[in-house]
Simulated scan of single mutants.
Amino acid sequence: MRVEIWSDIACPWCYVGKARFEKALDAFPHRDEVEVVHRSFELDPGRAKGDTGLVLPMLAKKYGMSEAQARAAEDRLGESAAAEGLEYRTEGRDHGSTFDMHRLLHLAKEHGRQDELVGLLYRANFAEERSVFDDDERLVELAVAAGLDADAARKVLADPAAYADDVRTDEREAAELGATGVPFFVLDRKYGVSGAQPAEVFTQALTQAWGERSPLQLIQEPGGDAEACGPDGCAVPQN
């Protein structure tokens, strides 16, 4: 079974939702038969590289609230993160374009290190002081920590076209599937779970998707199997 997760590194509920989903997945009896793929979704796709700012003033402006109200909202988010065992800095964080991070995640996918990198990016953005938005070498360090080659990561960051089409394809697919926000979880392209749902909801979704997988229907000539090759060799034509 494949689970695709559309998310953005700048999305706090994606950070929390990933932890809740993983709690359900870790307890799922068929865990080893579930493939998880992270898909790109930018909350601010038009934002230019280098255009950064502090989170609290941004929230106040975006939602028409005071900075005190924005701080209180961040405190509540911090409590939700802490309940999942996650660290969360409620003040002093910045925000900016996540396009380069998504491009690196596609590089990581090719090398089987995607989940490692997305976890490190979340932690760096939400729990650590050093920004992930204004320093390419910071992203290179995280890529290396995830198991990628430093020069390969630098090459991607130096070429704005590298994996750009992959990011845009993910975003188009999200729109086609009806996703208007993230996190958005899709199980076998049959079931969708929107938002950072409780672990119990993810458990239910995994169980239902697994149980309702369609069994393979064989189509063959009545009376027997056709010739084929297998571990023991190939069928010999009979007269």
Score class of each variant (00 low, 15 high):
Met1Tyr: 08
Asp8Asn: 02
Ile9Tyr: 06
Gly17Ser: 09
Arg20Cys: 11
Glu22His: 11
Glu22Asn: 14
Asp32Asn: 13
Glu33Asn: 11
Arg39Thr: 06
Phe41Trp: 15
Gly46Phe: 04
Gly50Phe: 12
Asp51Gln: 15
Gly53Val: 03
Pro57Ala: 06
Leu59Asn: 04
Tyr63Glu: 07
Glu74Val: 04
Asp75Gln: 14
Leu77Ala: 10
Ser80Ala: 15
Glu84Val: 01
Glu84Thr: 04
Leu86Pro: 01
Glu87Ser: 13
Glu91Arg: 13
Gly92Glu: 07
Asp100Met: 04
Met101Thr: 10
His102Lys: 04
Arg103Phe: 07
Ala108Val: 05
Asp115Glu: 14
Leu117His: 01
Leu120Tyr: 02
Leu120Arg: 14
Glu128Ile: 05
Arg130Ala: 15
Phe133Asp: 01
Asp135Trp: 03
Asp136Phe: 13
Leu148Val: 08
Arg154Gly: 08
Ala161Tyr: 06
Thr169Ser: 11
Arg172Asn: 07
Glu173Asn: 14
Ala174Cys: 04
Ala175His: 10
Leu177Ala: 14
Gly178Asp: 05
Gly181Tyr: 03
Pro183Lys: 08
Phe184Pro: 01
Phe185Cys: 01
Asp188Ile: 07
Asp188Ser: 13
Lys190Arg: 13
Tyr191Asn: 10
Gly192Ile: 12
Phe202Gly: 11
Gln204Val: 07
Leu206Ala: 03
Gln208Asp: 01
Glu212Arg: 13
Pro215Arg: 10
Pro215Glu: 12
Gln217Asp: 11
Gln220Gly: 10
Pro222Lys: 11
Asp225Trp: 09
Ala228Cys: 02
Cys229Lys: 09
Gly230Ser: 15
Pro231Trp: 10
Cys234Ile: 04
Val236Phe: 00
Asn239His: 05
